[in-house]
Amino acid sequence: MLSHKIMKPIKKILISGNKKYYVRDLDRDYHTELGFIRKEDLKNAKPGEKIMSNTGNEFFLFEPFFIDKYKKIKRGAQIISRKDVGFMITEAGLNKDSVVLDAGSGSGALCCYLAKICKKVYSYEIREDFFNKVKKNIDFLQLGNIELKNKDIYQGIDEKELDCIMLDLPEPWKVVDHADSSLKTGGFLISYSPCIPQVMDFVDSLTENFLHLKTVEIKERKWEIRKRKVRPKTRQLGHTGFISFTRKIR
């Protein structure tokens, strides 16, 4: 079994220009390529206050938000991108009262974000190495409402009356019958797949108890804004996966 070592928490965020720095130890000076910040300044500066490095470079100090910490979680498996996570959450209408299940935890990116939105999150991961990585990320983000299971969801789901089940699996169609028994009527079954044949097989496997709402892909394109000169950036975050939304109707 892999050792379970908790990552050091992020204590402060430093921003200089378009660069961001993550401070984990307030008892030592923090060194960057723009000079070092004295530990006294790190401890005493108020959020939003400007502090200087020994070389005269300006830094702004902030307390870390959840998103700052989230971006530093350990990765193993490819994670679902935030553009997709946000769309999945909003389309399912998840909120502080929602109880959800995530299967194929991978690095835990999805279940950790769900935990900041929902009342309770169950997460299934069959691989022990991924299971241990997810556990580290949960501890790092200090999330107490995730129940992580080293379990094969193809063999069944323990929980009942779930509001939503989200799948990031090679064969999501193997979960449809289990989801039928575990979702509330009106609950959402959402599958995230990188390849369209997976989508086709998943949708074809749906029983009469499920309604296929839609399958989408989300693309993100940044723009350069320089006063009155604007243009789309050449590179964009294009296809990352297909998201299929279904709903239990009976």
Rank of each mutant, 00 (worst) to 15 (best):
K5S: 12
K11C: 00
K12W: 00
I13F: 03
I13L: 08
V23Y: 02
R24N: 03
L26R: 04
D27T: 06
R28T: 11
E33H: 09
E33Y: 08
F36V: 07
F36K: 09
I37N: 05
D41T: 11
L42F: 15
L42C: 05
N44R: 12
K46C: 09
E49M: 03
S53I: 07
T55Q: 15
T55W: 13
E58V: 13
F59V: 01
F60C: 14
F66Y: 08
F66W: 00
D68M: 04
D68R: 07
K72H: 12
K74A: 11
R75K: 07
I79H: 02
K83D: 11
K83Q: 10
K83L: 04
D84Q: 01
I89L: 02
A92S: 09
G93R: 09
L94E: 08
L94D: 11
N95P: 05
D97T: 07
D97S: 10
V99K: 06
L101W: 04
L101C: 09
G104W: 08
C111Y: 02
C111R: 03
A115P: 00
A115H: 10
V121R: 03
S123L: 04
E125R: 13
I126A: 03
R127W: 11
E128S: 08
E128C: 03
F130S: 07
N132P: 05
K133M: 11
V134P: 07
V134N: 00
V134D: 02
K135W: 05
K135F: 07
K136H: 06
K136T: 10
N137A: 03
N145G: 09
L148D: 14
N150D: 10
I153L: 09
Q155M: 13
G156Y: 00
G156R: 00
I157T: 00
I157G: 00
I157A: 00
E159R: 04
E159I: 03
K160D: 08
E161W: 14
D163K: 02
D163R: 00
I165S: 05
M166H: 06
K174C: 12
V175L: 03
H178W: 12
D180E: 14
S182V: 06
T185K: 10
G186T: 01
L189A: 03
Y192V: 00
M200Y: 12
D201N: 06
D204M: 11
E208L: 11
L211N: 14
T215V: 03
T215G: 02
V216W: 12
E217D: 09
I218E: 06
E220K: 14
W223H: 06
E224H: 12
E224L: 14
R228I: 07
R231E: 15
R231Y: 12
P232Y: 04
K233G: 07
Q236G: 15
L237W: 15
G238K: 15
H239S: 15
F245D: 04
F245N: 08
T246K: 02
